[in-house]
Computed example of a mutant assay.
Amino acid sequence: MTKARAAEFGKHLFLTITCLFVFYPFFLMVQMSLKDVGQIIYEFFRIGPPFHFENYAFAWHRVSPMIGNSVIVSGGTALLAVVVSSVAGYAFGRMSFPGKEPLFWVIFAKLFLPGVLNLVPAFVLAWKLGLLDSYWAVILFGASGALPFWTFVIRTFVQQQPQELFDCAKIDGAGEFKTFLLIAVPLLRPMITLLMINVFIAEWNNYIWPLVTLTTPEKRPLTVGLAFLTSSYPGDYGHLMAGYTIASVPLLLLFALGMKQFVQGLTSGAIKI
């Protein structure tokens, strides 16, 4: 009994220390956002008044237009990835058509290519298609980068479901689309939520691709806009940290609202894959 308690204590101690290491940078960012330059230089670790909440007013004035851009780009990318990967995963998992297996493995092989390897070809393709300096350049190419992995995940998940469910729907006269909508989608709801949250966060934090494709300042998302804010105010870390804190709030709200489905999606994926 003593060994079991010691092991449990050690486990909780390890998890607590790990959480402290994970959350300390965020805590450091928040406390820096409430200081002026002098406090950051001479009282870096001190927490106390005066608190400079005006940093948030300044940062909000600078970054608020970019939040809408990030929502459009990240939401559009996540929505497109959900629709295409769900349909493709169902098709590869339950339908039969010529060349299904070779086509799937070609898509799956895309996972082994580093993302930076596609940067120049993707830029040239976006240029040839006339998509540069538009939201579509970020949305289409962002969703395409997420499709191989999530198509594989959803295909595997769908294949593990009882065949009888789909057969009953077809016996009742449902076509493939209706079967997908009424049988597959409810089963995939946790996985779809997991997919949407992951793609949304990945695109929200994306920096390189929006930087090279969006040249108009009014179209910049938060990641690119904050980088330009850093170069414009290189020594004013209070304003910069306030901007970073504001940029993190939507992601925290997204995770808080979708946490239950997120955990269910992780569990479903762990069991089925």
Results as ranks from 00 to 15, higher is better:
207 Y>T: 09
247 A>L: 06
214 L>P: 08
205 N>M: 04
225 G>D: 07
213 T>S: 15
198 N>M: 15
223 T>F: 07
220 R>M: 13
210 P>E: 06
245 T>A: 10
208 I>Y: 08
227 A>C: 00
237 Y>T: 06
248 S>R: 06
223 T>Q: 11
234 P>S: 03
220 R>T: 08
201 I>A: 12
218 E>D: 15
206 N>W: 08
199 V>G: 02
226 L>R: 06
243 G>V: 08
239 H>T: 12
229 L>E: 03
206 N>E: 12
220 R>A: 10
210 P>R: 03
201 I>W: 02
232 S>K: 10
233 Y>M: 10
242 A>I: 02
211 L>R: 06
218 E>N: 15
227 A>L: 03
231 S>L: 10
212 V>A: 00
235 G>D: 11
217 P>N: 09
223 T>W: 04
234 P>C: 09
232 S>D: 14
238 G>L: 13
204 W>P: 12
202 A>F: 03
207 Y>V: 10
224 V>G: 09
226 L>A: 06
213 T>H: 01
219 K>V: 03
208 I>W: 12
206 N>V: 05
232 S>G: 14
216 T>R: 12
230 T>C: 02
199 V>R: 06
221 P>E: 09
200 F>K: 14
217 P>R: 06
216 T>I: 09
199 V>T: 10
245 T>R: 02
250 P>R: 05
236 D>Q: 14
211 L>F: 14
236 D>A: 00
210 P>I: 05
240 L>T: 00
210 P>C: 03
222 L>Q: 10
230 T>I: 11
213 T>Q: 08
225 G>Q: 00
246 I>P: 05
200 F>C: 08
202 A>E: 09
232 S>L: 11
198 N>E: 07
202 A>C: 09
200 F>V: 07
198 N>C: 04
222 L>M: 12
233 Y>P: 02
